[in-house]
């Protein structure tokens, strides 16, 4: 996006007859780019802007069988129900906590693995590790959740067996039955499932770092750790920041499947997130208005976070999204 801006700048001074003319001149120069972006603008408009019409549902007592003008308008009642519900704060806390865990763990592990892989010199070993760590990404959560709950089971689950054999615990622990373990289990599962996949973008970014920098550092006597610290990590910084901003925008999207599939009455206090709340009180009870209201709430929070993070990056003089 930046490169487009800079490309546009040189053409500016040559234009005399006012702003409008300049604008058209630029437009005609970049018509290929503009034409290429048209399908995507249309796509975004149809799939992201037109559905906003549906937000009106949040202010109604919506009945699917009635037409638009027969609906009963209830103002902010759905929002009132949402925010005044006892469990809402708990659900919000869970959502945020799981999001932060996912974000932090996801970044740290992916960057660490990418750096380690980058340092590996044996191509076969590197490939093997990459393939193995990508694999879980392609397993659907339904299957993954079953694998995890079997591994954590108290009747011969491998985790309990292993810990007992090592003598760390003396009787099996019901991992999924203890609420405050849930965040940890979820974090670990997410890492297991996605760490390999997440390294791809960092590995790609590392290939962009000029090898002569490494050579120069080596001649100056920098050891491996110092090279990672002073060349690899700063080289990755722009990618990390852009990804961070984008992920902050999605922070309330903590996912639905793992929490739904591994959640149960015993860990509900920690596993229930906004999505599940919406499913229970919105979709399952046929209250589409409430589900929409929750969706609006999420969008607003995401919006604030995205802009907040972006302007923070701007102020710190870092690479930013827009």
């Amino acid at each position: 996006m930046r490169s487009q801006e800079t490309a546009a700048v040189p053409s500016a001074p040559s234009a005399e007859p006012g702003k409008v003319g300049r604008w058209f001149r630029t437009l005609s120069k970049q018509k290929a780019l503009v034409l290429m972006s048209v399908p995507f603008v249309i796509w975004i408009f149809i799939f992201k802007y037109v559905p906003l019409w549906g937000w009106t549902i949040a202010f109604q007592h919506y009945r699917p069988n009635l037409g638009m003008f027969e609906q009963e308008w209830v103002g902010l009642e759905q929002f009132r129900f949402l925010f005044s519900d006892d469990s809402f704060l708990r659900v919000l806390r869970n959502t945020l906590a799981m999001a932060v865990i996912k974000l932090v763990l996801g970044f740290v592990t992916a960057i660490a693995l990418a750096i380690l892989l980058n340092e590996v010199r044996i191509a076969f070993f590197k490939r093997a590790v990459q393939t193995i760590s990508y694999l879980p990404h392609f397993i659907s959560w339904v299957v993954a959740a079953n694998i995890i709950s079997t591994a954590l089971s108290i009747d011969g689950g491998i985790v309990n067996e292993l810990l007992m054999w090592l003598g760390i615990i003396d009787r099996p622990i019901m991992w999924l039955g203890v609420g405050h373990y849930f965040w940890g289990i979820l974090g670990a599962s997410e890492v297991w499932k996605d760490v390999g996949w997440n390294t791809i973008v960092y590995l790609a970014a590392m290939t962009m770092i000029d090898p002569s920098q490494y050579e120069a550092a080596e001649i100056d006597g920098a050891n491996r750790m110092q090279r990672i610290q002073h060349i690899t990590l700063p080289g990755l910084k722009p990618v990390i920041i852009i990804l961070l901003i984008m992920n902050l925008g999605n922070i309330l999207e903590t996912g639905f499947e793992p929490q739904y599939l591994m959640g149960n009455g015993m860990n509900a206090d920690y596993s229930e997130n906004l999505e599940i709340f919406v499913l229970k009180y919105g979709i399952s009870m046929g209250n589409f208005s409430l589900a929409t209201a929750a969706g609006i709430f999420k969008t607003v929070v995401s919006f604030i976070l995205l802009f907040g993070a972006n302007s923070l990056a701007k102020r710190l003089g870092e690479q930013r999204l827009f």
Binding site: H61, S87, G177, N264, G265, M266, A268, D269, K280, Y281, S284, M285, G286, N287
Partner: peptide, 26 residues
């Protein structure tokens, strides 16, 4: 009836029971 207090009660009481029954038994 959809969205009536009685229906919301059934969902809420179910959640509550699920949460407490396990605690009570264990």
């Amino acid at each position: 009836e959809q969205g009536s207090p009685a229906q919301i009660f059934t969902q809420k009481s179910k959640d509550l029971k699920l949460k407490y029954f396990s605690k009570l038994v264990l």
